[in-house]
Design a protein around this nucleic acid. Structure first.
Lengths: 201, 201, 201, 201
DNA sequence: AAATAATCGAGACGGTACGTCTGGTCTTACC
DNA sequence: GGTAAGACCAGACGTACCGTCTCGATTATTT
């Protein structure tokens, strides 16, 4: 992440990690307090006790900084349950995700995806740092189910994962309906039952 | 939309519709040319040959203005096909949507949803002006299918519609995978086949 | 001074004179307190309760602003004495100038001339607003002396005025020697006695 | 100039004269090209291939560096003519000075005096390194004239020198009038004729 | 027709944040 | 220990827009 190293970085003073940490921490705090829209680099610099130039030296945009701060705070929490029944694992995990998205995490993720619409590179950071790791974990759980005979071998896991999570993101982002437990149950059943029945997926 | 009229405005000069049109047209043009991020009310006012105050008099925010300009340009194009087979109607329409989202319309819609993350009221405009009309049309098509016996009566149409369109918005917004015809086919089959099989939806 | 009026200034909101006054006053205060080097437009804007853009709208540079603030505060104080003897008038006035230059006014004038070295337009303001009015007054006094027969008619007044005041500015600016009363007396006598004796001036 | 060496500098690496020369040369070049205002230590360091710290180690300020670079380039050129007639010597030399000030040297000297208004120490360097050597040479020429009976013994040479050169600096700095040959002739005659006539100088 | 009233284009205003630049200091690896 | 490189904190620079506010002129409706 951060900067592309050019030429010979073997000389001169080294990057100060204390500054780096202070900047990311200040960014995360301000993001939680006021949201991305109110986030200003001026404010981050002031709170982190850092010159603005130091931020510009290492991050190409406000979005990239916010995204990295978000990822650093959220990345460690993937955790997929592993029990005998893969379907239960998936169902349980989706309920957990739904609950998280109803809370404070929901707003930040909405904003990260929102800002990603205006900076392709920032969206790339989100996909690589947040989305893909979680998609991989979900695909692994589904794969376990296939190997245990819960679903047929022919299904395209990418499409199933999108079918499972896409509608949740959709409701998160457009707020046209609640992401409550009733919805999750009905939705997951629709998709997971569909897998067995589909001729082409 | 626009302003709530208070009291009795029966006297005085009436709102100038030429200005209104010029503003919305300028906004739409600038949106297409440069994107929402580069859109400035100063620029809109200059291009429309209008005072800034005139914009502020009638729209509460930059987002609301952009959304109205977007809706005005896009709204007329709903059109759901009606043939003997509802499943074919749905499939055909989703392919059309996917194709549109791969083009210029895709970027604008992504940006409208993106900016909606930071202005709830603006998102409301999007849902009411764009999303719900299209959801209603989709639900009507599905309802025709049910009445013709293509699917069972027990399904919750809102959940099916989300299952159908959610993943497309998901891919539109996060760009983690293409919205190509292959994907659409596999995805639609998965969901529509699943309807019949699901015990709870 | 200030801006060159372009196009049609008959439309739009008019310039706010209260702002203008606040800006010039704040500038003068800060100039006296800390000197031109420490003067920042940011500081002026803050103290005057004014947006920075308002300053940039009306003054082309920090120097021009400082100069106008200086001139406005200093301009009214020209006053040449008028008695029966022009030589006494000149001598008295130069002593007064010297005394002023030894004090706070001296530092500001030094700085105004100093900054004028880097901005020709600002120097022009100083010459037109400060120097020339005082040179004219001095020439008028000398002219009275000529008409009263104190000096011969042939002298070039511009050269005499430079001979009288140039050395004082020289000492003010380079500080290679004091501008005390002894020096003034000797210097003025040298020049004014010289007038009568010179064959070419 | 530069640093006072304290204690015993016999240990450690010695000062690198190549660096010193490169710095002064780069400074002088940039001064001539763009003027003092555009001069930045960052630029000097880059052009001289030197670290900024090396400059700060040996010069206390940007002004001191510029002044030393100026003095090094200009210092050697004093040269007062010596003929039988001291008055001619003075006149000839002043004409030469005036000619130099009308050219490129004029701008640099103006700027050196200008910056000296904001840094007393830098002005001191100018006076000691430039002004006083030239004043001494002028006083020596005048002294020769006195000893040859061209002027009376009673005159205060400092005052005469100021009377001769002050107006030239005045015109150089405020540009209220040209420093042409006509002016120089009239001015020098006024002052040198005045010497004989003055009762008090 | 006159009086009243809300609209309009224009643009100045107080602000906030931007991204850049420079000043001076400190750190690192090398010589 | 001096040096080149370059990261660091600090803070002013000049610009771009924001949303608000006067202006004088225009356009309807009401009297």
């Amino acid at each position: 992440m951060s900067r592309v190293l050019t030429a010979d970085p073997e000389t001169g003073r080294r990057r100060n990690n204390a500054s780096r940490d202070a900047i990311l921490e200040a960014t995360h705090t301000l993001l939680e307090e006021a949201g991305f829209d109110k986030l200003s680099l001026e404010g981050v610099a002031a709170r982190a006790g850092v010159g603005k130039a130091t931020i510009y030296r290492w991050w190409p945009s406000k979005g990239a900084l916010a995204m990295e701060a978000f990822l650093r705070a959220v990345a460690p929490t993937i955790a997929f349950p592993v029990t005998a029944c893969a379907r239960d694992d998936v169902t349980t995990q989706i309920h957990k995700v739904a609950k998280a998205y109803r809370g404070k995490a929901g707003r930040i993720i909405r904003e990260m995806i929102g800002l990603g619409q205006f900076e392709p590179e920032t969206m790339r950071l989100f996909v690589d740092g947040y989305l893909e790791p979680r998609r991989s974990a979900a695909k692994a759980a589904l794969q376990r189910g296939i190997e245990q005979g819960e679903w047929c071998r022919a299904i395209d896991l990418d499409i199933v994962v999108d079918a499972l999570y896409g509608p949740i993101f959709h409701r998160l982002l457009t707020a046209h309906a609640e992401i409550d437990a009733r919805f999750i149950d009905a939705h997951v059943n629709l998709v997971l039952d569909g897998i067995g029945n589909s001729k082409t997926a």
